[in-house]
């Protein structure tokens, strides 16, 4: 079966985020960018499905500026077969991203779409569910285990208080949680091979999707800093402070 994986180019998770002095957003000039960590898990899961003989082809799609092709190449180096780049320099909010992916789903007709549960920049946790709704598919969100059985897939989900397993009709949308797998690193030969894999480019206009933002960012600020505390000498002093100064026990 064909698996579609969506990946997003975001600030590298190790980079310290700085808010711009004019409060218009976060400073992304000259900072290291990378594939969103949850998307890496999505790519890895697709590759494992292919290694098990469940998936036959992995198509990776990314929405964003020209440079997002780097993340598509990374996914190709990890084992995806071909890429689709939806190029735009505009801000793409979750609903617009879901509509763009829906247009790709209509064309590619995958049996499964795997996405990260959220991106570490906007932290929305929306696109996969929105895509599932638009495509009329079931959704296995926050997945920690994916087992395909014939025309169904069993997805174990990380929910408040524990785990829940659901059975979904295929085609279905799956969004990844942290413990689904541990992504591999791309080997140098595979990185070289990835350069020769096909990568098609398209645009929101080509796909007939209006990506105008629905939410306006009024301002972005740094969080209020906590004032520094004190160091205590020992446990007895700590308990005394908690009881008599902070009065929390």
């Amino acid at each position: 079966m064909k698996v579609l994986v969506a990946v997003k180019r975001v600030i590298d998770y190790n980079v310290k985020v700085r808010v711009k002095p004019d409060n218009s957003g976060v400073d992304l000039a000259n900072v290291k960018m990378a594939m969103n960590p949850f998307c890496e898990i999505a790519v890895e899961e697709a590759v494992r499905l292919k290694e098990k003989g469940v998936a036959s082809e992995i198509v990776v799609v990314s929405i964003g500026p020209k440079a997002a092709q780097e993340q598509i190449r990374t996914a190709l180096a990890l084992g995806a077969d071909r890429g689709i780049h939806i190029e735009t320099d505009e801000e793409v909010q979750s609903l617009a991203a879901a509509k763009l992916l829906k247009a790709v789903v209509d064309k590619e007709e995958p049996k499964m779409v795997i996405l990260g549960k959220q991106s570490i920049d906007s932290d929305n946790n929306q696109t996969g569910q929105m895509l599932a709704a638009l495509a009329g598919m079931g959704q296995g969100t926050f997945a920690s285990e994916v087992v395909v059985e014939g025309e169904k897939v069993n997805v174990t989900r990380e929910v408040d208080g524990g785990l829940m397993t659901v059975s979904l009709n295929l085609p279905a949308v799956i969004t990844t949680d942290l413990r689904l797998n541990e992504p591999r690193y791309a080997s140098l030969p595979n990185i070289m091979k990835a350069k020769k894999k096909p990568l098609d480019a398209t645009t929101p206009a080509d796909l007939g999707v209006d990506i105008a933002p629905r939410l306006e960012t009024v301002k972005v600020e740094a969080p209020a800093a906590r004032k520094g505390g004190i160091m205590v000498e020992d446990v007895a002093q700590l308990v005394d402070k908690l009881k008599n100064e902070a009065k929390v026990i």
Binding site: L95, G128, A133
Partner: peptide
């Protein structure tokens, strides 16, 4: 929570509105 995070974006798409998370 995980229930709201799961179904609310789906409602948003059905109503063609953004969600504020």
């Amino acid at each position: 929570g995980t229930v709201g995070k799961d179904f609310m974006p789906r409602v948003a798409a059905l109503l063609d509105v953004a969600q504020i998370s």
